[in-house]
C-alpha cells in the first residue's frame, strides 16, 4: 500500500528524488541546447514551468472527461496551446530572449517532461496535487538548468549572469559553449549526483545494519542475564 504524500512532499520530490533531468533524464534537448548562459537556462526553465503548471492543472481538471483512447491527442493540444501562448508572449515582450532561445520555446511542445508528467501524474491525481507536482518538477528543472548554465557560462565566457567572475588572464574554454561542452557538463553532473546518492544510501544501509547488530547484541546480553 502506497503512502499518501503531502503536498509539500509532492513538491520536494521533483527537486531531488525524481529530478526531471538528473533522475528521469527527460527534457534533455533544451537542457543541452540552451544552457550556454545562466540567464538562458533560467528563461527556458521558467517558460517550461509555466507550460508544465498550466497544462498539468488543466489536464488534471478534465481528466475524468477525456476518453482514454484520445487522451494523448488531448494532452498535446492542451500543451501546444500553452506553449504557443508562452512563445507569443516572449516574442512580444522579450524579443531578445526569444531570439536567444530560438526554436527551443516552440519545441517545449514535444518536451517529454511535460507529456510525461501529464500522463504519469496529472491524469491520475487531483488538480491541487498536479499543480504542486508540476511546480516541483519545474523547480528541479530550473535548478539543473541554472547550474548547467552557470558552469558553462563561467568557463566558456568567464561570467555568471553577466557578472565577471574569473580574471581576464583565464582564457575562456570555447568547448563549454559548444554542444560538446553541454554533454560533458551534464554527464559529469549526473555522475557526481549519482555517486553522492549512492554514498548516502550506503551509509543508511550501514547504519541500519549497525543498529540491528547493536539491538541484537543488547537482546542477547539481556537473555544472558
Amino acid at each position: 500500500m502506497k503512502k499518501e504524500k503531502t503536498l509539500l512532499q509532492e513538491f520536494v520530490k521533483g527537486i531531488d528524488e525524481i529530478n526531471p533531468v538528473m533522475k528521469q533524464a527527460l527534457g534533455l534537448c533544451p537542457t543541452l541546447a540552451v544552457t550556454v548562459s545562466a540567464i538562458n537556462g533560467i528563461a527556458m526553465a521558467l517558460a517550461t514551468t509555466f507550460v508544465l503548471m498550466f497544462s498539468s492543472l488543466m489536464i488534471s481538471i478534465i481528466r475524468k472527461l477525456i476518453p482514454s483512447q484520445v487522451r494523448i491527442a488531448s494532452y498535446i493540444v492542451i500543451i501546444a496551446t500553452f506553449v504557443t501562448i508562452a512563445d507569443l508572449v516572449m516574442k512580444a515582450k522579450f524579443p531578445a530572449m526569444s531570439k536567444a532561445l530560438g526554436p527551443f520555446v516552440p519545441l517545449i511542445v514535444v518536451n517529454c517532461l511535460i507529456l510525461g508528467r501529464a500522463e504519469a501524474f496529472a491524469s491520475k491525481n487531483n488538480p491541487l496535487k498536479a499543480l504542486f507536482d508540476a511546480l516541483g518538477n519545474g523547480a528541479g528543472f530550473l535548478i539543473v538548468l541554472f547550474i548547467m548554465g552557470s558552469i558553462r557560462e563561467l568557463f566558456g565566457s568567464r561570467t555568471i549572469l553577466g557578472f565577471h567572475i574569473l580574471p581576464h588572464s583565464f582564457e575562456p574554454m570555447l568547448i563549454m559553449i559548444l554542444p560538446a561542452g553541454a554533454f560533458i557538463t551534464l554527464g559529469l553532473l549526473m555522475g557526481f549526483k549519482n555517486a553522492y546518492t549512492e554514498r548516502v544510501k550506503r551509509k543508511e544501509r550501514e547504519d541500519i545494519v549497525k543498529n540491528y547488530r547493536a539491538v541484537s547484541k543488547l537482546e542477547s546480553t539481556n537473555q544472558g542475564l
Binding site: Q69, V70, A73, I78, T84, L88, V89
Partner: peptide, 28 residues
C-alpha cells in the same frame, strides 16, 4: 464522445489562442 471531446478542446484552445495572438501580433 471521443469526437466531441477533441472538438471541444480544439475549439476552446483555438479561441483562446486567437485572442492571445490578436494581442501579441501587433507587438511582434
Amino acid at each position: 464522445r471521443m469526437i466531441l471531446t477533441l472538438t471541444i478542446i480544439g475549439v476552446v484552445a483555438g479561441g483562446f489562442l486567437a485572442n492571445v495572438a490578436q494581442w501579441a501580433n501587433p507587438l511582434i
